[in-house]
Design a protein around this nucleic acid. Structure first.
Lengths: 178, 178
DNA sequence: GCATCGAACTTTAGGTATGAAGTCTTCAGG
DNA sequence: CCTGAAGACTTCATACCTAAAGTTCGATGC
């Protein structure tokens, strides 16, 4: 009972609503509306990372490297940051950053040099090739993102962006209650 | 210029709007509305994972283990799944799943036994302790989640859940265009 | 101006992931 | 039966991350 005729297990990945129904049975004071939002966020993010991973792999870089390229571009010209600052923004330890920069330097995506005015600091700078890779990845990403949002009207996109921004502000408050 | 008086770099993690402003300068045909949604999703998820990580660590388990507990609970009573199915749902390789189950078995969160009706298969089953840990984690998580959404009205929560569900449906279509 | 403290990065040791190869069980044919 | 093929899990080699110790440079106090 519950088994398919050929004896294999159904494997029926539960839908979001099925998941929430089970949660409600198992955990009485669950707010299904809240749970739907956070579970959708979680699932969505897993799927999006898979999509981005495929795109960056097609360009010969990893998702991890793309994160570094993004951070450098976001910092604005002249596209320079210290390893610690990069690590903080990406949520990595400085040690991991050291190795990642090693690899990206070997691949010509960034350069690493000592700051002559303060020789303790190191400056990681985007190369032209790194900038070009960022652009390639960005082009692929925006196509996917536009596709992802295609069922939402312009007004809905605005509302969604707005609500997500409020959640982001809230979570930042919760984490650094300065 | 741009440096703070004490000579340290400003480090000023760019806000979401600053990030998008830079992107627009660097990449002309960017739709800022779309970018705001996806960048907010990405940032939000990083922050939420940090929050969940702290909570699970306080309970003596890892976020990775919590993912397994969730998948088993969601599968419903009697809380049994095969390693491959678990791996597929969590986005891991079967090899990684083997090791994760090793650890969780050692910690008493799950049991692993061969399926007697088909001795190729392995059945991973939640223990009472595993179920109890899931409940503890769930209690902590829902407090955080309620806190996260506190600025949104009930109506807004509904709209948000609805839009996210539509995005989820869309990304699933894009990835398995059966 | 020398010593100490602190900051920024790197190195090392250990854990967890991936990908490929290996083992064991089941099923279908000859 | 016995063989070969396919499926499910595990093992092995390698890669990348974390935590902690180490190194180097700069700033402060005497």
């Amino acid at each position: 009972m519950g088994d398919t005729p050929d004896g294999t297990t159904p494997v029926h990945e539960p839908t979001l609503d099925e998941q929430i129904a089970v949660y409600q049975r198992e955990f009485q004071d669950l707010d299904p509306q809240v749970e739907k939002v956070v579970s959708a966020l979680s699932r969505l993010n897993r799927r999006m990372n898979v999509a981005y991973g495929r795109q960056t792999a097609a360009l010969g870089i990893s998702n991890a490297e793309w994160e570094v390229l993004k951070a450098l571009v976001i910092s604005g010209a002249p596209y320079r940051m210290g390893p610690s600052e990069l690590a903080k923004q990406l949520g990595l330890t400085p040690a991991a950053m050291t190795h990642r920069i090693d690899r990206m330097t070997a691949e010509g995506l960034v350069t690493r040099e000592r700051d002559e005015s303060n020789r303790v600091r190191v400056i990681v700078e985007l190369t032209d090739e790194g900038r070009s890779k960022w652009l390639d990845a960005m082009r692929a990403a925006t196509v996917f993102e536009e596709d992802l949002l295609q069922d939402l009207s312009t007004a809905e996109r605005g509302v969604l962006g707005d609500m997500l921004t409020r959640l982001l502000d809230r979570v930042e408050d919760l984490q650094s209650p300065s």
